[in-house]
């Protein structure tokens, strides 16, 4: 009732205010499910991880508060730092490899031509396979007795005997790189392609009229205008690689001789092989900090330069 009276006495202004207030509430209502999801599935687990990391928390039995002792223990945990060093090495190599394959592919499929749809689909296909299933597939392909690569090379006369690719570090490591590139390059390619397509063709044409060659155009127009796309693809690739686990667990079990233990693998081992959940939680917090820092650095490096849109 009062609303009706109010609207009649001060019509326009009043209605506007009520509307704005209500719109805000409705807005909050709309985001509430998302906020609830983030709270339940991210904020609370993160808080619990942080809380657990301050405890001696075995898988079974009573846990006790030990303050920062887990973090001090990490400082002396050489095998974690070795795992982290290997993870860094892997991230650099695999990111370079993914971009080296994905960028040419993106340039190749960007403009419509004959069979573009076919190429796009077939390059993208491995991306829809889960990492675990892809790892299982490749662990068979790489098997020395019943797989594909070693027996094929032997039958074709390329090697004198069947070579066990997973027995020594270099072939094992590069096999994993090949598998990850096969699996991920298609996805990165699609991201890069959308970036390429968002560059207005007139810019390229103008540069062409000015006499810029293909390489100069790529460096001066394509790359700078793809800054955001590159940032996205890079962050996705780096974050994915720092968290690498499945392929090393399934194909190599961290071998040969524990040379391919990644940081996440080490966290898994501490938590579920040694049953030290609290210590695993502390390691996870450290890895989280490292990952956030890495992402910030990448965003900063690829930030928009002053005055450029």
């Amino acid at each position: 009732m009062t609303t009706i009276i109010a609207t009649t006495s001060a019509p326009a202004r009043r209605r506007k205010l009520v509307g704005a207030g209500r719109r805000q509430w409705i807005g909050l209502l709309y985001v509430a499910p998302a906020v609830a999801l983030v709270t339940v599935f991210f904020i609370i687990p993160l808080g619990m991880t942080a809380w657990m990391s301050l405890h001696n928390w075995p898988l079974m039995g009573a846990h006790s508060f030990i303050g920062l002792d887990n973090y001090w223990a990490i400082l002396r945990d050489n095998r974690f730092w070795n795992a982290l060093r290997f993870t860094g090495y892997y991230t650099v190599i695999v990111t370079i490899a993914i971009f080296a394959v994905a960028f040419p592919l993106a340039l190749f499929i960007e403009r419509p031509r004959q069979l573009t749809g076919f190429y796009r689909t077939s390059f993208f296909m491995p991306a829809v396979v889960g990492f675990a299933s892809a790892s299982l597939l490749w662990s068979w392909l790489l098997n020395v007795d019943s797989g594909l690569f070693s027996p094929a090379a032997f039958e074709l006369g390329l090697t004198e005997k069947k070579v066990n690719l997973l027995a020594t570090f270099q072939p094992a490591f590069w096999s994993i790189i090949a598998m990850v590139v096969w699996k991920v390059a298609g996805f990165t390619m699609i991201i890069l392609m959308t970036g390429l397509q968002s560059i207005p063709p007139d810019l390229q044409e103008a540069a062409m009229i000015d006499g810029a060659g293909p390489f100069a155009r790529f460096r001066a127009i394509t790359l700078p205008l793809m800054r955001r796309t590159l940032a996205l693809a890079l962050i996705l690739s780096v974050a994915g690689s720092v968290l690498a686990f499945d392929q090393f667990y399934i194909i190599l079990r961290g071998g040969p001789r524990n040379q391919t233990l990644t940081a996440v693998y080490w966290i898994f081992n501490q938590s579920f092989v040694s049953f030290k959940l609290g210590y695993g939680a502390a390691l996870s917090m450290i890895l989280l900090v490292i990952l956030v820092a890495l992402s910030l650095v990448q965003l900063w490096l690829l930030r928009k330069p002053e005055g450029v849109d």
Binding site: V144, D145, S146, N164, L166, P256
Partner: peptide, 9 residues
């Protein structure tokens, strides 16, 4: 011994 034995987990 088959060479796969070396990496059989």
């Amino acid at each position: 011994v088959p060479s796969g034995a070396q990496t059989d987990t």
